[in-house]
Design a protein around this nucleic acid. Structure first.
Lengths: 302, 302
DNA sequence: CTATTAGTTCAATATATTTGAAGTAATGAT
DNA sequence: ATCATTACTTCAAATATATTGAACTAATAG
């Protein structure tokens, strides 16, 4: 026997310390005093350590005894928590929920949602990953996440449930003082094609790469994230569509200029959330519910 | 029953997971397979949670089961550690050691000693307090500390063991450009008495205040710590003796000037460590041993 | 100097665990 | 496909462990 300590003994020890008496502890635990005495004696014997000073009428904890009570309480709490966790997760709560978010969306509003969730269910792990364009669908499809929040482009098949929770406006934006600013508005295709377009790399691995509806015959510069794309626009390296909510700062400071196009409306993309149809997880349901209640404005962090 | 989990069940669960088999776990725990089966069945029943998937020949942990194994190991470790701690402290190791150090000494070298100690005995708490002059003796005398490291002035009686572990040199030092610098050397009492002396408050509460051997008939400015005294000297507010090792920086930068005195040698104070004679604590012994081995230079942090 | 309180001891009893033999069902080998 | 083997389960009996209540001891409060 490596450790002679038992949780029952720790419970008894705890009760004695709180009630300051063997008899009172016995009552609390629905046992007779002699049973308490037996448990403590056994623990002392097994440990070969005196836990109580019995020279007085009332038994008093020795310093070591006090320490065991204190540390023991931590252990008892841990087991109670473990029991609780186990019951929760056995009753339909996931042990972890993996959320994949399109990098077109801002993380911040999701953070506060996660914080809220974590307050209620601190034992459930939330794993957040980021993908660009089709990457979120791909992550869901290949089982790398349980819930995707992302740009549109629906997936075929009946494995997933998808809900549109809003739309994102895209506008054609270029750097201030960009040559295109001097051209006659609205801009034509020919004008635009003279400048490279900035494309965010599709992080899809399994799915066919999505064209993202870009103009043809134009030089392309591929960047790994939406942030880098915005940066590239600001540097004047290229031109293209950007989601309004991510560039409000740059538009306000006139770092980026929105330009009207002859052949394209300012485009709208649907914002989806999607998850496995037969995923009955309650944490998933919690997030789906909250996300649907959320105002688009909150999610985009205008 | 609040938590049906028992440490024994967690041990069994751990063994099964490691050995990947009920039978192997049984062997490891010197029980028959049916006993293992019984323990697991009981735990599953009490928790009302399926811990193993028995559809295959080899029982496999369910996700919840895996979690319980993982968390359970933490709990098992904690109990093992608790047992260890208890045995250690019952075998003569203190649960905490209170060290009181004279503020004349630097804390830093003691910190590394404490760090070293903490590496070997992480469960023993070290409480470090600081006192000025007689304060360390007083702290020891009144039971506020177990070990004092400090300036001299031996205590009468046989309650304590004291060891001299070195000496500290004190010199008479004043601010650069202080009027005393211009006087003829060596300085006489009369010259010094014109300027206030800086006295560190004796934090003693129970013991008669110690005169600290200062010149009489001189204005006194009382400061609460050695640092404030050095500061006061640097500001030219007063004059007096300072421990060399605490003012090497100021002496090198000529912020403070050491001056020779006619009537006093540069004084030496013995550096003591002392502790209760019948304190048989092993942590105390460890520190006493290490402190005696330490070079004065290390302790003063020259 | 009792009377009372607090905890202990002990034999009897109740409960829980372990055992070994027999059983079931899945896997692997032929 | 069949059969032996593996891996675990079930069950009754045996054993170990915990609980009880009655009798006991020792400290302290009145």
């Amino acid at each position: 026997m490596i450790s002679p300590i038992t949780l029952d003994a720790l419970k008894v020890l705890d009760a004695i310390e709180r009630k300051k008496s063997f008899a009172a502890a016995a009552e609390e635990l629905f046992r007779v005093p002699s049973a308490i005495s037996y448990t403590i004696n056994k623990l002392e014997e097994d440990l070969a350590i005196q836990l109580f000073d019995r020279s007085k009428r009332k038994a008093e904890l020795t310093p070591v005894g006090k320490m065991i009570v204190e540390q023991g309480r931590l252990i008892l709490n841990a087991t109670d928590e473990l029991t609780h966790m186990a019951k929760q997760s056995a009753s339909g709560w996931e042990l972890e929920l993996r959320i994949c978010i399109d990098s077109i969306l801002k993380f911040k509003p999701l953070y506060s949602l996660i914080a809220l969730f974590h307050e209620e269910y601190p034992w459930i792990d939330i794993r957040l990953t980021e993908e660009v364009f089709g990457g979120t669908w791909d992550a869901l499809n290949s089982g790398r996440c349980d819930l995707m929040i992302g740009a549109d482009g629906d997936i075929s098949g009946s494995k997933f449930t998808a809900k549109i929770i809003g739309t994102i406006d895209f506008i054609f934006a270029v750097k201030e003082n960009h040559p295109l600013c001097l051209e006659q508005k609205p801009l034509t295709d020919a004008m635009i094609k003279k400048y490279p377009s900035i494309v965010v790399a599709d992080s899809s691995r399994d799915l066919p790469t999505r064209s993202a509806g870009l103009l043809d015959g134009q030089a392309r510069i591929t960047v790994p994230s939406i942030d880098k794309k915005i940066e590239a626009h600001c540097q004047g390296i290229g031109v293209g569509y950007l989601p309004i909510h991510r560039i409000t700062k740059e538009l306000n400071s006139k770092e980026l200029i929105a330009l009207p196009l002859r052949d394209h409306e300012n485009r709208q993309h649907d914002l989806y959330i999607a998850w496995g149809k037969n995923n009955k997880g309650k944490a998933l349901a919690w997030f789906v519910n909250k996300l649907q209640q959320m105002e688009m404005r909150e999610l985009l962090d205008y």
